[in-house]
Amino acid sequence: GDPQIEAAKDQGVVGERIDGYLGIVDGSADASLMRLVQDINNKRRAAYDKLAEQTGTTTEQVARVTGEKLISQAARGEYVMDESGTWTKK
């Protein structure tokens, strides 16, 4: 993954969400990291839209399956957001 994002994940500032997108864990991150997260999420959505079109599924389904995989692959100690919208430390 992107080195800045990996570092932010290690520091618990950024985490993977069940809906397939990156989130800012406690809502306070510097402007350039927030812009990077926004950039990656824009690109993830484009990738989900494309795969959904190829497989005749919906963007929401593709994003969800990806979110579940990314959370399962997240390292111990990283933060992840579950269905309820709360961040928990793996």
């Binding site: 350039s32 927030m34 812009r35 990077l36 926004q38 950039d39 824009n42």
Partner: peptide
């Protein structure tokens, strides 16, 4: 656009 300025990152992606 990010080649011109990092300030637009996340605004006009791809």
């Amino acid at each position: 656009p990010t080649a011109l300025s990092e300030r637009v990152r996340g605004f006009l992606s791809n």
